[in-house]
Simulated assay, not measured.
Amino acid sequence: SAVYGAKIMKDLGLIPAGYKIMVVGSVQEEDCDGMCWQYIVNKDFQGQEDARSKIEFVVSTEPTDGGIYRGHRGRMEIRVDVKGVSCHGSAPERGDNAIYKMADILQDVRALNESGDGPSNRVKGLVKMLNPEFNPAHYEDAQFLGRGTCTVSQIFYTSPSRCAVADSCAISIDRRMTAGETWDSCLEEIRQLPSVQKYGDDVKVSMYMYDRPAWTGEVYETECFFPTWINKESAAHVQALVDAHHALWGDKRIGHADADPKRDAMHLREGRPLTDKWTFSTNCVSIQGRYGIPCVGFGPGAESQAHAPNEITWKQDLVTCAALYAAVPGLYKPENKTADVTEFRQSLTDNDIK
């Protein structure tokens, strides 16, 4: 859709004077969202300021269920390591079982995701960030993006054998971050869990780093931190897509209708606002979240189809998106661009992103 959209612009003379249209195909997004754009900004451009001065805005073509998406939650990958002392399994009281310690921590991580934020909650749940009492500066944006979440995605251990006490245990936590949360606040939240405090220096909480080589062998090391981002609905680049959709297709989401619910797009789209947000994460975590380059989403397919068995994309969506992409540059009004359009979490919440 993006390639055909660019071709349509070129063939019909729809590219405004002084502008260049770039179609970017990048790798490793599923492994480390936005890392590819970190490389683009710092290698193909001369860093953040150079990229921001040359890139007016970016349209992400990830699937949007027929909607125009102006933000999504961020995420980070957290590791918790617990130390124990091994001994022979016939006398476990001589050791210190790291798996038992981790069992306590697992229950607190689960409570962090599932509990409420009332005074009776031993662990106040992540839902608290929707509450102005706990998130006065950003609760409205958090209510739009949705609450943060956390879940344990992996567990590891070391033990001399199956007849010995485990001397270490570790878990990975997938942490989704809403407006007002930072990498520091998320790490500190885990460190302050009652069970983590209970085991003191035997527990280490850290953020993963990413350093897997690309297909070329290139390694671009970065933190496994993917910032939250959001635009105002009135932002000029968001409105350009809205205006294009209204002119071409009206003010409602459109898509293929089919008697077979598995092949019907509209049951996923009816009743949902045209301008919305993603549930999952995209390269926009770097494009706008790290670097402040305005970003907006409109792409073929359904979020629920991403990574699903026998995933499908609707052919009608491909045409719809190509047409909208072609119309957007001519409807973009740079005079309506404001300096605070991308001023969001990372500059407001003191994350020291290198």
Rank of each mutant, 00 (worst) to 15 (best):
A214L: 14
K204R: 14
K252P: 04
M177T: 15
A111G: 03
V123P: 08
S1K: 04
Q197H: 01
Q239I: 08
W314L: 12
A51M: 06
M9I: 06
E181C: 07
E62Y: 07
Y39T: 03
L348K: 14
T349N: 14
E77L: 15
M102H: 02
V85P: 00
F280E: 03
M209P: 00
F45V: 04
I353W: 13
A236K: 02
T216W: 04
M207P: 00
Q288A: 08
R122K: 15
P213Q: 07
S90D: 09
Q316I: 07
G271L: 10
N121K: 13
D117S: 15
E29C: 02
V205F: 10
D258R: 00
Y291C: 05
T349A: 07
L274I: 10
D258F: 00
I171N: 00
L126V: 05
V59A: 07
Y210E: 12
D167A: 01
Q48K: 15
K315G: 05
G250I: 11
V296Q: 12
Q38L: 01
T216I: 03
G66P: 05
L193A: 03
D44S: 05
A302G: 00
A111I: 02
T182E: 07
E77Q: 15
Q239V: 08
V82M: 12
V123Y: 05
I99Y: 01
A265R: 01
K128F: 05
